[in-house]
């Protein structure tokens, strides 16, 4: 049995108290805990005090700000809440799909959106017991100095494995962060960096308080494709978020803009480039799906950081991208 290390837990009632508590050395934020607690049992982090957000009620509201034209989702909203929220479904249906595909129902009842966007990167050589890791001497992200995924590699390539992050980037979302120096807002496409040991630009003392999705008045079709071996529980093995702005509200309409974001590569989600070629083409034109799938396949190179062969997953990116677009077209 894997046990938690001995540590203190603080339950602040307000955000200000939480931010203050995070300034003491050795403290670490915990929300749903579904990512953090297994990592603590695996001895991947060693905080001495957890600052729980469970008592901070102001973080779980979901509102539509009509003036700013934004959907504001409190970071403490559970993934089940996000999946089932009518406002999220109306304005960001692909986020509902992604939230509803994370892990299992029990985990989604506990896990928060703020936790999911800050999900630590994962690697088959890291997310194991410390006993298992000791047999290979650890790695850059744990106790060692080498990388087992990229031999000779100096940079950690643990995989960004959140289902919601690629979708949120594809929707142009930002994060609201609050820290000792006040609040700031950062576009999610700029929030992640290509370093698996520290893959976000969040400062230690900062708390993610909200995920903000801009509302659009123009027609749009957005979707999320996740492939895993099992129908539940697993982290994604391929993960593609797609968002198409259309000139009219029908799938035969020409595309006005396309954003495709791919996860589970390295530590940073990849925003697929050179999609201009499909602008002006109809979404339902099979050539559109073929072009986008080809771009994804060419630009995205999965690594051996998660199970299942990387070349197979790369082939599957092409198939699943094309199928995701076909599904959007079939849904009308």
């Amino acid at each position: 049995m894997l046990r938690l290390p001995r540590l203190d837990v603080l339950m602040p009632a307000t955000l200000d108290e939480a931010v203050l508590a995070l300034q003491s050395p050795g403290s670490r934020l915990i929300a749903g805990g579904t990512d953090l607690l297994p990592n603590l049992k695996h001895r991947l982090e060693s905080p001495t005090m957890l600052v729980s957000l469970a008592g901070v009620r102001e973080l779980s509201t979901i509102t539509v700000d009509d003036d700013a034209q934004e959907l504001v989702i409190g970071a403490g909203a559970t993934l089940t809440t996000v999946e089932q929220c009518p406002q999220v479904r109306a304005h960001a249906p692909s986020l509902c799909s992604a939230a509803g595909l994370v892990a299992s129902p029990l985990i989604r009842n506990q896990a928060t959106l703020g936790g999911n966007v800050n999900l630590d990167t994962r690697c088959r050589y890291v997310n194991q017991t410390d006993f298992w890791r000791s047999a290979i001497g650890g790695c850059i992200k744990s106790e060692g100095t080498v990388c087992h995924v990229v031999p000779g590699g100096k940079n950690c390539v643990a995989a960004m494995s959140s289902d919601c992050v690629p979708v949120l980037i594809s929707l142009g979302a930002s994060l609201q962060l609050v820290g000792p120096n006040g609040r700031r807002r950062v576009a999610m496409k700029d929030y992640y960096v290509a370093d698996g040991t520290r893959h976000t630009t969040r400062e230690d003392g900062e708390v993610t308080t909200a995920v903000i999705v801009p509302l659009v008045s123009t027609p749009r079709r957005a979707g999320y494709s996740k492939w895993t071996v099992r129908g539940s529980i697993d982290f994604p093995l391929t993960s593609v978020a797609l968002c198409f702005d259309l000139e009219r509200d029908e799938v035969a309409a020409p595309i006005a803009g396309a954003t495709v974001v791919v996860g589970v590569l390295g530590a940073k989600p990849r925003v697929v480039t050179r999609l201009d070629e499909v602008v002006g083409k109809s979404l339902s034109d099979p050539e559109t799906a073929a072009i986008v799938a080809e771009r994804v396949h060419r630009q995205c190179k999965p690594l051996a950081n998660v199970p299942y062969e990387a070349p197979y997953r790369r082939q599957m990116l092409r198939v699943h991208t094309r199928r995701a677009i076909e599904a959007l077209v079939a849904d009308g």
């Binding site: 088959r124 050589y125 997310n127 194991q128 017991t129 298992w132 047999a135 290979i136 087992h148 071996v229 099992r230 129908g231 539940s232 529980i233 697993d234 199970p307």
Partner: peptide
Amino acid sequence: IMEEHVVDPEHNGEHTGPSLLDYRMPTFLD
């Protein structure tokens, strides 16, 4: 369909599925 015991000779013969997350058993859905 999915269960598999694999040891990795390049990493001191470590089992690649040492937990019920990495050693996959079918769920009700599968």
